[in-house]
Each structure stands twice: as C-alpha cells, then as structure tokens.
Design a protein around this nucleic acid. Sequence first.
DNA 1: CAGTGAGCGAGCTTCCGCTTGACTT
Length: 735
Amino acid sequence: MGNKKYLLIIESPAKAKSLSTYLGGEYEIVASNGHVRDLPKDSLGVDEANGFKPRYVILQEKREKVMELKTRARNYSHVFLAADPDREGEAICWHLADILERPGITFHRLRFNAITKDTVLRSIENPGTIDMQLVDAQQARRVMDRLVGYKVSTWLQRLLGRGRSAGRVQSVALRMIQEREDEIRMFVPVEYWLLTATFSQNDSVFKAVLKKMDGSLCCRPGKIPRNEEEAGRIVERIESIGDSWEIKSVKTREKSVKPPPPFITSSLQQAASTKLSMSPSVTMSIAQKLYEGVTVPDRGTMGLITYMRTDSVRISPESLQKCRKFLEDRYGREYLTPKPRRYRSSKGSQDAHEAIRPVDVELTPEKLSHHLPRNQLALYKLIWNRFVATQLRDAVVEEVTVEVGGGGLTFETSGEKLKDKGFSVVDKGMLRISTKLPPVAEGKVTMLDYGSEQKFTKPPQRFTEAKLVAEMKKVGIGRPSTYVSTIKTLKNRRYVEREEKYLKPTELGTTTIRLLTKTFPHIFEVDFTARMEDLLDSIAMGRDTYENALTQLTVPLESSLADAGRRTNALKSELEEKTGENCPECGAPLVIRWGKYGRFKSCSAFPGCRYSMPLEREDEIVYSGRKCPRCDGRLLLKKGRYGKYLGCENYPKCKYTTSIPTGVGCPVPGCGGELVEKKSRKGRIFYGCSRYPECRYALWNMPVDKTCPRCGFPLLEQKKNGLWCPSCKKKITEQ
DNA sequence: CAGTGAGCGAGCTTCCGCTTGACTT
C-alpha cells in the first residue's frame, strides 16, 4: 500500500503483469480472473413475474478472490475497472462495482483494446463510467441462456433420463452435426467417367481430360458419359480420330493471391488442425502457454503472443509499424505492400482484443527454436508467419490452360507456375500451387495413350472439431472462449463421438436433437441467436429495454414449452420401443426406455412393477466364433476407453484381451500372427501383429503389398521415411 | 505405434460466458 493511490482491476493475471510495467508505482493491479458473480447454479434465479429480475450469487470458486478484492478496495477511494471493452467485460465491471460499493468510493471504467503503453495511458487519462445499457444487454443474454437451458433441459430429462442437457449453443451445434450426418446418409453417388489421354509434343509429355464434345461439356457429374457403355462409345470416337490432334490454344493468365488475414481463435484452431494435427483444445492450451509467456535468455519472462481468445482481425498500429520495419530490413522494401494492409472484422465481432499475433516480431521462430518445446514452437511459427505475411505483397501465380482438339473433341489440362513468391517468401506452405506443365505451343501433338476412369460423386465429410468451430463462428453461435467447452459438453453428454478425427452423432444424440427440433422449432436454430443478438444490440443502443427484449424472446420459448408439457407423455411412449416380450413378473409388455446409462428393458407397468433388464449390448455379442487361446472361452466384443476390443467371456477369471482382428495374416515370414486393429495413445488407428510384443510388426495403414528388395521383409509405411524396411533399418526408395 | 471390464436406471440436474489453477477421475 503506502505509496499506492489507486486500485485497478483487470480480468486476466497475465494482463495484470503487463500493465504493471506501464503504470508507475501509484497503481495496485489485481486480476478478477473473469466473472466473479453469476446466477445460482441450483435454481433458476430469475423472477419472471417481476420483470425477469435476476438473482446473483458469488461464484463458489471465486469466494476467496472476492474477499481479497474487498479487502484491497477498502484502502482506496478510487477504483479503476479495466475488464475487456465488450458486453461481458462491462458486466464484469458492474458486478465488481456492485460488490465493492461503499460510501466514499468512486469507480472509473477503463477501456483499451490493446495493451500498449500508449493506449493504456490514454484511457487512464480519460476514464469513463459503466455503461448500464451494455450491462443490461449482457444480463438479457445471460438470463435468456438460463431460461432456455434450464427449462428445456428439465423437460428433456423427463424423457431421456437425468443428466441430459439442451442449450441455445450446444443444441444448435449438435443439430449441425446431425444434419451433416443426414446429408451423408441420404447421399446418392452419381456415376460419371473421365476420359483421359497422354499427349506429347517434342520433349513435353502431359495428361489431359476430355472436357467438351461437339461444343457441350462432358466428363463431369450429370453429363455424358454416365456409364461404361457411353464411355466406350467415346473411346471408339477417340480411336477413329487417329493422329490428327492439335493444340488449339495455350492460354496464360496471371492471378494474384492475397495473404490470409491474421489469426482469430477459430481460424487458428482450423489451421493448427490441418497443418499441425492439433485438436482445438490442445491448440488453445498451447496458445495459453505462449500467451502467459516463457523465459527467454536476456529478455526475461515475456508473453510471446497477444490474447488467444479473440474474434477480431484488428492489428494495433504500433505493431504494424514494427512489423513493416522488420520486413523491410529482412526482405527489402519491394516485398512490402505500398500501404499497410488492414483487415476488417466480421459482423457480430466484439472487437475487444486484437488479432492473435506475435507480441514482438523481432522474436522470430528461429530465435526461439532452442527455448521452446516443439509444439509451442510449431504453433508460434504458424502465428508468426501468418502475421508477417499480411504486410507482404500479393503472390502472383501464372495459370496455363491448354486445349487439345481433334474431330469435335476437346481435351483440356492446366498447370500453375509461381511467378512471384510474394508473401509466401516467409513460408512456402502458405500457398498451394498445382503441378507445372511442360512447355508446349499451339500446333500438332501426338496422342501416346488414352483411357477411361470410373468416378463417383462423394458425400460431404463429417466435421472435424476445428471445422465445427469454423461453422459455429460462421453462423454466429458460441464465442472464442467457449468453442472448446461446447464440444466437450457434447462429448460428455454422449451426444457425439469422435471417430478418427471426425465427429459423429450417437444414437442418443440423434434422438435428442430430433426431439428438440420437433418440439422447439424456433429455439434451436441459428436464426434464434441472430435475432437475440439483434435485440441485445437494441438494448445496448438504448432502443429497447431489458424487460421488453426478454418478453419478446421468451414468447416462442414459452409457447413451445407449453406444447411440450402437453405432449410429454405421448412423446415418451413414442420413444418406447416395443420388444414383443412380456414381463416375467407381471405379464405386462416389456418396452425399451432411456435411462441414465442409455437404453434398458423395462416393464411397461412401471412404477407398479419394477422389473428391469439390461439390453443385450454390443459387448455381449460373440465375435465371429473366436475362442480364447488361454481358457477356450468365447471372445466377446467389448467397448473400452480405447475403443473396441475382444475380451474373454470368463472375465474376471480369465483376463485375456486382444484387439479386433482384420483377417489379414502378419506378413513377417514364419510369424503366423494376424494383424489386429489398435489405437495409439493419440487415438489414431493402426495395425499391429497379434503376437505383440514377440512380433513388433506394425503399420499405420493396412499392409502395403510390398517387400524389401534386399531381404524380402514386408515393408512399413512411415509418415516420415515413406517406405521403410524394419529388418535392414533402411529407407526404401521405390522404383 | 501397444491399454481396456460393470451389473445401475425410470425427476433434481441443467445453461453460456469470462478467467485460471486445482489436486486425485
């Protein structure tokens, strides 16, 4: 205390640390660690009859923190509240002021959206007051989520057992996963054929695809040829043309490619997923470490990146200047864009933070390479590259399109060539270029070869976690701080499962979302959140009131709830599957119902009769008549933490387990084992020998049908080395 | 790149959004 004059409260401890370097000894800086007060957990906490008045309680886990804040605040008559300059931040400030209020204390609201000395000092010279309209908008958001969440979850639990949940965000996310699944299921592949030919001109050889026949497009879905017969007829026509093929045109077109915008939470998760195979949750925890900082020799401990939970692509002017200076020194002025390239944030963005960028461009990934763990370095590099690329000039790609004609048929091929590296000078991988074409010119060509290929249109892919986040961001549900936890909730509730890296709905998930969309058609759709956001904006702008907006928003909810209440029993019996069996105790029909742990067989006379029986589950299915090699018991298909496996029926007497056989023998000569499906610690499926650890043969994909040219040993396919012989311990290059 | 296992249940837990450490899953 002593020399301190003011108390300043901010959300994050890491920000508190940086602030203390800018503000002199007059300020005592404390972090609130996010929200400190919320609606009570164990009751609705909203007085609907009284203007939706909320009742708040101190968060259990923040009791100590609030005590600390109160004690500290006692020493000051001026308290600065510096939570993020957005809706949630405003509410945090108001809750804090409400808690710390006492005679003789004055609160000042600070708003800065980048932690630089300039912005912080400027905002401290012009402090404001708490914006109650913005606070009301947040309260309306909070209360609406509570009303939807608790009321619908309670109803859902009557149908599907305890623990089930529904919410404005999670249920729409589940719906997106389900709708994608439905599309895949409904998908009808369309057959089409590609007619290809290889041509040569002087020393150049290239492959082209038939594109037009007698002036109309072909070789694509819905066009001719649609089957083998039609393809055959075109092949005949190609043959009849003989050697009168000619390159009709060689067109070149230059296109410039802009660098992608700097990272925000969702795009960082997406890029880390595709380029580094990191899940969104892993990405966020690594990013958190980079943000909190690492110790760099000679520079002490410092945060390496700006805040990682952001939806803004804004870049602070200071860092922009520094970045451009750095790039000028490194690559020369000509590599820079003439004017700084700026990006505009999308609609619905709250813009409280900057984009995710390196705090100091001078700290290049190379400089840090010995001070960071590998995964942190990889993520930092991704962020650093993406940031500096924004200030570099466009790349230029030359696209060459070649048309070969003969007798009414036109073949086409194209290739790309990099004319100007532009921004990709920092990382080649930022630009994807298709293959080059050899040099050709208009005039005669020879057809060396031709053929036809059967193709089918492909169904859309399931969402990866990162793709789901990208989609949520696109439609405006969820926030940077909640993307990961929403997915986690869907998994915890057993609504979705991960298969490989893709999300798919479980039976429970499908049942749940069907019930919800049917019963609450206006709540669990993307438009509901959009409408809510519009109303929240109106509150913030003073065009509407808290109570009015909530009244409007609860109309569709209440009418659906009333309807749901009336239909509960009907829906409940609809969900009950008949078994055709009768209860052994009372003779009433047996039905399948949903319980806490999934479906089970129950007497329809419940609660009069309490007979119940577990369903025959997957783990009770005998797996293809295989016997346990230790005790001759039957092997059962089980589901464990690491996926499916086979276990002996005599468990726990016999603890034999093995993985799922593939029916393919182990290729190691004289081994006699069989390849089985396994899951690595990271969850990836691979195939290994059933005689492990005596035989250590293993591979990522199903056996490659190749043997070592030196010793005849079956080859492994390795990501790093390609084909690799485990016997010679050498990399094999294919001939 | 290598592990795995319970016998319940049908109404009292559930939401979204801010932040990090917390110990026993």
